[in-house]
Design a protein around this nucleic acid. Structure first.
Lengths: 139, 139
DNA sequence: GTACCTGCAAAACGTTTGCAGACAC
DNA sequence: GTGTCTGCAAACGTTTTGCAGGTAC
């Protein structure tokens, strides 16, 4: 875990992006969180440690991290976007009852991309998938 | 096309849902549109024919249609949701440059659902997939 | 006639922006 | 010291809400 953070910080430094305490805290929160937090979750989680913390700062950094590829923004129907520190490729199983999001893995869906390229003429870079259903707790 | 509309109206009638002119117009717009319109697109497209038309009515009906399964809401990052009259299962190819959304088809991804069920314990009902890339026009 | 639907306006909500001061480098 | 980042508050755009009147059945 600490390794991921150190790697990420190093990449920031290499890109001439300043490492402010707030920025590092947002990054740390994302790496340590397994709950796909919203911007507000992150804000609420950090405002104790950083009393003056602003939501704008959270959004600023989330946008930055998304742009450089550290995190993925997920905007699934719900009111607010969720953010995912994506270290490896995975899909999301979303509970239609309680809204919980669980990571799930499935290999070998790359041929979908080539198939779509032939069908649409797009040059596909990546794909995402969401599986909707009922989680064990809600069944 | 008219067939789809008639079928849909019949299903509404069978569900004891009133067929108001505005409701029918929203439905018709969705069926005839191949452009995955936003709520505002629909409103703008209908306000000429229905001078008093309210956005609230558009949203009311979109929510209703989503609930009974006529349409799918797509909330992909953009500011506003898009709505898709889904007659058959398909996926979306989204251009990262211009935002265009094109339908694409790919068979036999149902085993992903069963795999996810075993991994997560979810009872999966459906899945969606988005392919991100660059469309022919933007390449 | 009655319940549901519409239109209107205001409000709520998540997110973005402008700006002045602060701070990482 | 400089340019970027932060915090604050106001603004923005989309969506929701409450309510009074209207209309499909």
């Amino acid at each position: 875990m600490e390794k991921k953070l150190a790697e990420a910080l190093q990449q920031l430094k290499a890109s001439d992006i300043r490492i402010t305490p707030q920025r590092q805290a947002v990054l740390e929160f994302l790496i340590n969180s397994h709950a796909h937090p919203t911007a507000d979750d992150i804000y609420k989680g950090l405002v104790d440690k950083f009393p003056g913390m602003s939501v704008a700062t959270v959004y600023n950094n989330l946008r930055l991290f998304t742009k450089i590829g550290f995190v993925q923004e997920m905007a699934y129907g719900d009111a607010s976007s969720r953010f995912d520190f994506s270290s490896q490729k995975h899909y999301h199983a979303i509970c239609e009852s309680c809204g919980k999001i669980v990571d799930t893995y499935y290999p070998g869906l790359d041929d979908v991309e080539t198939a779509a390229e032939q069908l649409t003429g797009f040059k596909i870079n990546e794909h995402r998938m969401e599986l909707y259903g009922i989680c064990p707790d809600c069944q």
